[in-house]
Design a protein around this nucleic acid. Structure first.
Lengths: 182, 182
DNA sequence: TGGGTCATGTAACCTGTTACATGATTAG
DNA sequence: CTAATCATGTAACAGGTTACATGACCCA
């Protein structure tokens, strides 16, 4: 998947590994977290698969860059992945918070309450950060003139917003239950 | 995390690898998907860490079982993990559907629409399946008499319900945008 | 006689995490 | 002078996926 995220970013234009990394952080990290080291490794794999091409650019006063460009094979792979059947996609999740919730009965009730309250705080902070997302999308929109693409960035951002609202509501529901049970 | 899910199940009582696997499918798989082969491997690791103990049980007419029991060290590890700080937990996600959504502009609009419609269908089917979850929780409740624990299973199930409602609403929002853009 | 349940895994591979390593320029 | 930004990674390890392997019993 990370491979396809990188291919997707490169479909907008050439980027260095460093730029891919920052673009990833600014946009895709809202729904896909990845380490810098992993991104550089995946770039190597993409090159071995013939999906991208690298070209070194010498700079003075700065480290050299390796500019990556998507190939035709890479574009084909990106489209193949997008069109691929994704049955069971909504089911295939891995959520540590729910795992902890499920077993929270092992801790004293006071610690359980604290657990949900700290989640609530995080949701509230995150909700604030989502205003920035709008700004990032606008910035992208200026960089990549194809207006049709921004619609989909907006949809992903909207999911983030709805997800956080839902999450916050759920933490409040849990806190209420914990407080009533006292 | 899978390790802790297994420890959590074993905190309710002894189980064979096979039983852990089925209990996982019936409850934790709603928020953590895991392969059978991985579960058996993690059981080995848990034993090496001294968090569980295995004991072979001969059966006739059936394959032998390896019954697993949590140790005191295992219980301590479970509590340590539950109480551990989980800053950034709501941010640390990996969602292939959002990744695809973000880059859906690479496909013709008709295929984009089909993508969201197939997600919508999956949400609707899943919403039906959530009725079963209530039944599973009731079954657990009978098996594990400690009534305090069921509250947390209920919270996890409630998250599943809210998540699916949110997801369904989002697919409808996306479909509307795609249809209006025609 | 064919499929489902019970019951165990191994091997190879791919993906993600953590820790480390280097070094110049630029803005405050 | 110090922190951030630019720019590249490697090595070791942990966690997850896919494919394969075995075999008896029970029910229709």
């Amino acid at each position: 998947m990370l491979k396809h995220g990188i291919l997707g970013l490169l479909s907008y234009g050439e980027m260095s590994g460093y730029e891919i990394n920052t673009a990833f952080r600014d946009s895709l990290s809202f729904f896909w977290s990845a380490q810098t080291s992993q991104i550089y490794r995946e770039i190597d794999t993409l090159e071995k698969n013939g999906w991208i091409e690298k070209r070194a650019v010498e700079q003075d006063g700065r480290p050299n860059k390796n500019i990556c460009a998507i190939t035709e094979a890479g574009r084909a792979e990106l489209r193949r992945w997008l069109a691929e059947d994704n049955a069971g996609a909504t089911r295939d999740r891995r959520d540590p918070v729910m795992m902890k919730t499920f077993f929270m009965g092992e801790l004293p009730a006071s610690e359980g309450l604290e657990f949900f309250k700290s989640l609530q705080r995080e949701c509230q902070e995150y909700a604030g950060g989502l205003q920035e997302t709008g700004a990032i999308i606008e910035a992208y929109q200026k960089m990549i003139p194809d207006g049709k693409k921004a619609v989909f960035w907006q949809m992903a951002a909207e999911f983030g917003k709805r997800y956080m609202e839902m999450y916050l509501g759920w933490t409040e529901y849990c806190i209420k239950i914990m407080e009533e049970a006292q």
